[in-house]
Design a protein around this nucleic acid. Structure first.
Length: 563
RNA sequence: UGGGGUAUGGCCAAGUUGGUUAAGGCACAUGGUUUUGAUCCAUGCAUUCCGAGGUUCGAGUCCUCGUACCCCAGCCA
């Protein structure tokens, strides 16, 4: 028995599919689709759906997953989004092969089906205004009333619908509705709209059409035309399922996919709604869709998340119909885990404090071997230049340290990682009383970090040689919001008031080990003792790479400090 | 009684047709290893499954009655 064989997740959708397979439903096929509307950038919530749909196709023999753009509302959609969505799905590691579709590919077919509905007296053209329609729709507890145009003749409906398509009417003047049941307790069944008039340019079909089909009508038919077996969507469409089924029952389609709903992803300390993300971008609260603080795929990518970590996350959180909020800690843990095994370790001082090694010869440079990964020798090593003047992290020195503080303090000895033991002899302060420099001595016998006399030292800190340091900018990112549920309806304040002012801070005088000059765009590293960082893909700092903090390392010292 | 859903530890979540001690992950705690207070390893962490009744030799799983929360009145998706 192979202990390392990863068990496929068990969830209710897989159970349904397994049953279907057992009963030979759909001839044993599993065919899903990921159907985004191209009206915004993909975010972590979409990743859940992508991993579900494409993941199912990967896991089942012969499984397929289509990418289909649900582009029935030209007013909101744009090629900018169809492009970015494809790039994001690919980046996540999924492949739709030659099955890239657009709902707009089916406009003609959809129109013909609407004609069938009209001929069967299952649809009619209504002249009511938007407000009149709403008034007759009823409420949640009261039934709606039929429109006065509900019983128009087939001929008249056919003529009117043809003229709608021909552009004879103004938007809002006429609408095609399904004739179902105005008294249904399900609002979706109260003669829902099928076609509305919109005289705008469609990103794909241009000005070919001025009537556009609605989602409910389009989605089920598109699924059927593509031979989808399991049409997975989020919970809010549960009420739409009877309508999904109704259309397919009326029409001569070749198959009838099964719609199954699951709970959408909610993450704490962030927002995942296209509308809100859009607002953050357009109001300049973040620097764009790819701002590393954004939960968008492009944002997370720029932040340093790997596709593997996102997929792992999606597999870990499970799939149910329960409305839940996942702790971002789970996501952060996934990147840490992935990055831990794949990144090289380097030394980088974010907030430098100058240290002069008094007994180290002036002008001399010594090169010290340092492995790139303590647990993986295959990653190789590099040489670190060491000299009389170095920088250490400000946080690694305390003038009056508490007992449990293992780092540098007056008279204390610590190890410089892969270098020497040093002892702090003197503190130099500026006029404001701030420590600006430390005078230390090193023990030449401790080269590499071990004392021949066997004496131990409690702390090991990182450092960078002053004259060799790569001085560049490091950007520290943190959670975008400081409230776990910024958009909770229970708050009185606006969700945007919970934006974490410390969600970004920059270190402009960071000193990194020189090997990092060659770091390539999107390359990830672990800065020892501080976190995982990757090279920003857009900006540079006077020609030098800028590093973004993906996530901090676990820090049990910080926990202890706060006790 | 508008309709549709969901309730298993701090956060997720398995639990196929009722059968012994309620998976697993995250978080947390403790101990070990460690030249990252990282990683890694070990151990602990629900006498109980929203509540109350009931059926049964036996119920998280079945029945009844409640409770809480989510979604629906776009010519958005």
């Amino acid at each position: 028995m192979s202990e390392n064989s990863k068990l496929e997740p068990s969830n209710f959708i897989r159970n349904i599919i397994n049953d279907d397979l057992k009963n030979n439903k759909n001839d044993g096929r599993v065919h899903t689709r990921f159907p985004p509307e191209p009206n915004g950038y993909l975010h972590i919530g979409h990743a859940k759906s992508i991993c579900l749909n494409f993941g199912l196709a990967e896991d089942y023999e012969g499984g397929l997953c289509n990418l289909r753009f649900d582009d029935t509302n030209p007013e909101k959609e744009d090629v900018e989004y169809t492009d970015s969505i494809q790039a994001d799905v690919k980046w996540l590691g999924f492949d739709w092969a030659d099955r890239l579709f657009y709902a707009s590919d089916y406009f003609e077919q959809l129109y013909e089906y609407a004609v069938i509905l009209i001929k069967d007296s299952k649809a009619y053209v209504d002249d009511l205004s938007y407000d009149e329609m709403r008034a007759l729709r009823g409420t949640l507890t009261e039934p709606g009333k039929p429109s006065p145009h509900r019983d128009r003749s087939v001929e008249e409906n056919l003529d009117l619908f043809k003229r709608m398509r021909a552009g004879e009417f103004v938007p809002g003047e006429r609408i095609l509705r399904a004739k179902i049941d105005m008294a249904s307790p399900n609002m979706n069944m109260r003669d829902p709209a099928i076609y509305r008039i919109r005289k705008v340019i469609h990103h794909k079909t241009g000005d070919e059409w001025c009537v556009y089909p609605m989602y409910d009508y389009t989605h089920c038919i598109s699924d059927a035309l593509e031979g989808i077996t399991h049409s997975l969507c989020t919970l809010e469409f549960e009420d739409h399922r009877p309508l999904y089924d109704w259309f397919l029952e009326q029409l001569p389609v070749k198959c009838h996919p099964q719609q199954i709903e699951f709970a959408r992803l909610n993450l704490n300390y962030t927002v995942t709604s296209k509308r809100k993300l859009n607002e953050l971008v357009t109001e300049g609260l973040v620097l764009g869709w790819d701002d590393p603080r954004m939960p968008t795929i492009v944002g997370m990518r720029r932040r340093g998340y790997t596709p593997e970590s996102i997929r792992d996350f999606c597999n870990r959180i499970g799939l149910t119909k329960t409305d839940t909020i996942i702790d971002v800690g789970v996501l952060e843990n996934c990147v840490r885990e992935d990055l831990d095994k794949r990144t090289r370790r380097v030394l980088a001082v974010l907030n430098p404090l100058k240290v002069v090694i008094e007994n180290f010869p002036e002008g001399e440079v010594e090169y010290l071997d340092a492995p790139y990964h303590p647990n993986n020798p295959d990653m190789g090593q590099r040489s670190l230049p060491f000299s009389k003047e170095i920088y250490i992290e400000q946080d690694d020195f305390m003038e009056d340290p508490p007992k449990k503080f293992f780092r540098l303090g007056p008279g204390r000895e610590v190890r410089l990682r892969y270098a020497y033991f040093i002892t702090c002899n003197e503190i130099i302060k500026n006029d404001a009383g701030e420590v600006i420099e430390l005078r230390c001595t090193y023990d030449p016998e401790t080269k590499g970090g071990n004392a021949p006399d066997g004496r131990k030292v409690k702390g090991t800190i990182h450092w960078v040689s002053a004259e060799h340091a790569l001085k560049t900018q490091v950007r520290l990112y943190d959670r975008l919001f400081n409230d776990p549920k910024p958009d909770s309806k229970k708050h009185e304040k606006d969700w945007k008031s919970f934006i974490n002012p410390e969600s970004i801070s920059t270190c402009d005088s960071a000193c990194l080990e020189p090997s990092l000059v060659d770091a390539k765009t999107e390359e990830c590293f672990q800065f020892e003792r501080t976190g995982y960082f990757n090279v920003d893909s857009k900006d540079n700092f006077n020609g030098k790479p800028i590093f973004n903090r993906t996530v901090t390392l676990r820090d049990s010292w910080a926990k202890q400090k706060n006790r």
